[in-house]
Design a protein around this nucleic acid. Structure first.
Length: 195
DNA sequence: AGCACGATTAACT
DNA sequence: GTTAATCGTGCTC
């Protein structure tokens, strides 16, 4: 193989139950291309947000300008702004018309270390990309990528197959930051993390 | 038109 | 452990 792009995960990967996609994204490589340069990291933490009935999911508000992308086809990026300053990256999952997505919460830097260091260098290396808003800052992801097709390399953002993470290396637990979300949604074990 | 709050982070006591 | 930063979104009036 001689391609610059290595096995981009296809749309069928995302067109499956969100929990399955969240689990299988662990070990995959999130790739951003800016001005022809690759900045990439291995995904080590994800969370699933599943449908209008999930009161932790933005789609609980139904179809609105903000949630529209989640109702679209799988394999697109849902990027949203929160806390007045942070961008979060999700991969849209399941069939078109059903709103669901996987939040990418942490990556381990693999390529483009200099670019990441330039953006995150004020912090210790171990904290460069260990949070959902940290990795979007490190990879230069913002509203311009909302709705981008992760299955089309022209968009400059995609996910490649990476290494398989064995079950004994995966920790599963409740999603983080859902402080005012009612039970049982607040405690659903929909967070996946590589030890 | 106004308001409360957020799938967070970094700095500080 | 606590808190400021900072503004888009969805809901109420």
């Amino acid at each position: 193989m001689n391609s610059v792009v290595n096995s981009i995960l296809p749309r069928e990967f995302y067109n499956r139950p969100t929990l399955t996609v969240a689990r299988e994204l662990l070990g995959a490589i999130l790739v951003r291309v800016e001005n022809g340069a690759r900045v990439a990291g291995m995904i080590v933490e994800t969370e699933a947000y599943v449908g209008e009935s999930d009161l932790g999911c933005h789609a609980k508000a139904g179809r609105t300008p903000r949630t529209e992308v989640m109702y679209g086809p799988p394999g697109r990026a849902y990027v949203y702004f929160t806390y007045g300053m942070h961008w979060m990256l999700n991969a849209v999952t399941e069939a078109e018309g059903f709103p669901a997505a996987v939040l990418i919460r942490a990556i381990q830097p693999v390529e483009g270390i200099e670019v990441i260091a330039a953006r995150r260098g004020t912090q210790p290396r171990a904290r460069w990309t260990d949070g959902p808003a940290k990795l979007t800052q490190a990879l230069g992801i913002d509203r311009a990528l909302n709705g981008a097709d992760l299955c089309n390399p022209d968009a400059g953002l995609w996910i490649e197959a990476g290494k398989s993470i064995p079950g004994e290396s995966v920790t599963i637990g409740p999603r983080v930051g859902l402080n005012t979300v009612p039970e049982p949604w607040k405690s659903k074990p929909w967070r996946f993390l590589v030890r």
